[in-house]
């Protein structure tokens, strides 16, 4: 799996050398942001088995945290990443407390409500969030480059592309290591049988909160990148459809698989653009692809490939 990871990274880094089209790079940057979100949601839904339908809220919280800190206090992007992650993570834990006693379908409904509440709050807290018009003039990231001094990312595509590739790589490593640790195993135990997990000595309450916090924090990082790239954020970028989309990526790639989250995000992030040629049938084809996937390989793309003996070993539980 390691080989495939490094290979994918090399290919990803080479893409801007192959295509000069800013459009291609932008689409891939968008897919990369989706990958970050899918990796984060996978910690909650895939690793720990907690169905979450309001994940876009953490993306929004990260974006607004960086935007507000930047606009009011002048916090630069790199410094803003941390509070964006921390704020989203905190909200993830805080949401986790009241939903501790609900599972499955009920958890899905409560988290769906949470996602909507956050979006509506950002729409209505006009004095702070600018309401439906959102926040404007958020600073782009800057970077010091030898010989050129401090360079603003501005509205160019390539720097954001590499930023997203770097963050996705980092988060992937973090997720793989979390999954293979004792905490990751405890999450898997909770996912499979919460009672048996408790009777094996696992503090299920603490670990579920930890998973929700980690997952949300990753969403917060993605949010800050999004805000810095766009320079403008409005509440309608963080709607329910986004939550569903990210969940679809996680499931399509293979629930609980780190590689699956990335593959799912690449497929669903790029597919709508590929289908642009057949504009009217775009959503129809999109839906058909989803249905076909779930019929043919319900364990997701990476799950199916593994069962056929690809990527090392036919059966690796909670695999990366």
């Amino acid at each position: 799996m390691m080989r495939w990871g490094v290979g994918s990274l090399i290919v990803a880094c080479a893409v801007p050398l192959i295509t000069r089209s800013a459009y291609h790079i932008d689409v891939l940057t968008g897919a990369g942001l989706y990958a970050l979100l899918a990796l984060g949601l996978n910690v909650v839904v895939g690793f720990t088995g907690l169905l979450h339908l309001g994940y876009a809220a953490f993306f929004a919280i990260g974006a607004y945290t960086y935007a507000l800190l930047n606009l009011h206090v002048g916090v630069p992007f790199w410094l803003g990443l941390l509070p964006a992650a921390a704020m989203a993570g905190l909200c993830g834990v805080l949401l986790g407390i009241p939903v501790m006693r609900v599972r499955g379908d009920y958890l899905a409904i409560v988290t769906l409500g949470f996602g909507e509440i956050v979006r509506i709050l950002f729409t209505n807290l006009e004095p702070w969030t600018g309401g439906p018009n959102g926040l404007l003039g958020i600073a782009h990231p800057t970077m010091w480059i030898p010989g050129k001094g401090v360079v603003d990312f501005g509205v160019r595509s390539v720097p954001y592309y590499y930023l997203v590739v770097a963050l996705t790589t980092l988060v992937t490593v973090v997720c793989v290591r979390m999954n293979r640790s004792r905490v990751g195993r405890a999450w898997a135990a909770i996912r499979e049988d919460e009672v048996a997990a408790g009777c094996a000595g696992i503090n299920t309450v603490q670990l579920k909160l930890l998973a929700q916090g980690c997952g949300a924090a990753i969403g917060g990082v993605a949010g800050a990148v999004f805000a810095a790239k766009q320079g403008t954020i409005t509440p309608d970028s963080f709607d329910f459809i986004l939550s569903v989309m990210v969940l679809a990526m996680v499931v399509l790639g293979g629930l609980g698989r780190v590689s699956g989250a990335i593959v799912g995000a690449m497929v669903l992030g790029v597919l709508p653009e590929v289908l642009r040629g057949v504009e009217q049938f775009r959503m129809l084809l999109f839906g058909l692809v989803m249905i076909a996937m779930m019929r043919l390989c319900p364990q997701g793309i990476m799950g199916a490939l593994r069962d056929r003996g690809w990527f090392g070993g036919a059966h690796v539980a909670s695999a990366a």
Partner: peptide, 8 residues
């Protein structure tokens, strides 16, 4: 028996 499905 309560085992964790999918785990080795």
């Amino acid at each position: 028996i309560r085992l964790f499905a999918h785990l080795t």
